[in-house]
């Protein structure tokens, strides 16, 4: 699946988008896998309360299933308007 990062999450991880092969069943499980990869992921995902997640472009929460998902995006709370 494609994993996308926006705003300071993108800056901390260093890429806007990457392909991730995973068997993780939920967003949380995917986050745990990413955290274990490298320090930059651990830093970006240190405080999940500061992050929001979208699965296939729909806002959801970290318990959500990612079975069959094409696109997961992580970003800080939005500041539109």
């Amino acid at each position: 699946m494609d994993v996308l990062y926006f705003a300071w999450v993108r800056e901390r991880i260093g890429v806007p988008k990457e392909r991730v092969e995973t068997d993780a069943a939920t967003v949380s499980a995917l986050v745990d896998e990413l955290r274990a990869r490298e320090d930059r992921y651990a830093a970006a995902f240190a405080d999940l309360s500061a992050l929001r997640v979208a699965v296939d472009q729909e806002l959801t929460d970290f318990d959500a299933s990612i079975a069959g998902a094409r696109e997961i995006a992580f970003f800080p709370p939005m500041t539109g308007g």
């Binding site: 926006f6 705003a7 300071w8 979208a54 806002l59 995006a73 970003f75 800080p76 709370p77 939005m78 500041t79 539109g80 308007g81």
Partner: peptide
């Protein structure tokens, strides 16, 4: 519309001022 698009539409603002650039906190 304004209330929802401020917090539920995926936009992020970054202010560039002087030598610094900071993401605007929600």
């Amino acid at each position: 519309l304004m209330d929802y698009l401020k917090s539920r539409a995926p936009f992020w603002k970054k202010e560039h001022a002087g030598d610094s650039a900071d993401w605007v906190a929600a």
